[in-house]
């Protein structure tokens, strides 16, 4: 039965991924951010950063890539909440081994969609920005570790927030974190205590990891301690991954246990009241 549900989950992920690239609303969200970010890059491409010899555009492109990768956390959380509200999750619960299939499918569709979004941004970006040097191996390990660090955390947040509206609460602190994570402007220019806060979250480390994968080593001079700090990157992202993977199953189980038809109906009534 386990192999059946793993196979079903893979199919599910593939179908969801296809759906998200074949309807207008989803296509818009796949292209809107990458295109907006490319526009931002376009205006930053010639501006030099101090005496470093690098343009702001070259420093920002990997950071933006890292930020987008970290957004898997947000989309995982949003999708879980939405699926709970419309009963998709309850359907999975009513199906033998359906929760396993659902989760595998969700991980594939969120990670797959994310990688597609990264490509939509990165490929045109490479043509736009000079001075990049691609280390494919580093790109892959940073991205892979980043996904393992952020997706379980997203699943946990998605279990905690009960409605898409309350998901809105999540956006503000995340935008704040992005602002202080050295995505658009090197973090070394920030006050020390803000640097400390940013270094507790995956946004900064994904950005740093991406810079290490896409910039020449000389660019590390701009970073904290003048180094790519790979060890620290692995340590912080790894800590997020381990914590997430340890907590997520229990949190998800708890959430799934509480799902029932009347709960889904209750939530719908609340939503309708808000509209009506």
């Amino acid at each position: 039965m386990t192999t059946i549900s793993v196979k079903a989950g893979l199919t599910r992920g593939r179908i969801e991924l296809r759906q998200s690239f074949t309807n207008g609303a989803d296509l818009w969200s796949h292209f809107f951010w990458p295109l907006l970010m490319l526009a931002v890059l376009y205006f930053m491409r010639d501006r030099a950063f101090g005496m470093s010899g690098f343009t702001l555009g070259a420093l920002a492109l990997p950071g933006i890539l890292g930020m987008n990768a970290a957004f898997g956390l947000v989309s995982m959380s949003q999708q879980l909440t939405a699926d709970r509200e419309d009963g998709t999750l309850l359907r999975a619960k009513a199906t033998p081994d359906g929760m396993r299939g659902y989760l595998i499918g969700k991980i594939i569709s969120v990670a797959g969609g994310l990688i597609a979004d990264l490509a939509i941004f990165l490929i045109p970006g490479l043509f736009l920005i000079d001075g990049l040097r691609i280390d494919a191996a580093a790109l892959i390990w940073v991205l892979a570790l980043g996904l393992v660090a952020t997706l379980p955390a997203g699943a946990i947040l998605g279990s905690v927030f009960t409605s898409p509206r309350s998901q809105g609460l999540l956006t503000l602190p995340i935008l704040g974190l992005i602002a202080i994570s050295g995505i658009f402007y090197p973090i070394a220019a920030l006050p020390g205590w803000l640097q400390a806060v940013a270094q507790g979250f995956p946004f900064y480390w994904l950005g740093l990891g991406m810079r290490s994968a896409l910039l020449p080593d000389a660019a590390a001079a701009v970073e904290i301690a003048g180094s790519w700090r790979h060890l620290e990157t692995v340590a912080v992202l790894g800590a997020w991954a381990v914590t997430g993977l340890l907590l997520a199953p229990a949190v998800l189980r708890r959430m799934a246990r509480k799902e029932s038809g009347s709960r889904v109906a209750e939530r719908r009534e609340r939503a309708l009241r808000r509209i009506g």
């Binding site: 039965m1 009963g87 038809g261």
Partner: peptide
């Protein structure tokens, strides 16, 4: 679970 079928009051999934 595989031997039980469920039709709820309303599904929108």
């Amino acid at each position: 679970r595989a031997r039980v079928g469920i039709v709820l009051q309303s599904w929108r999934d």
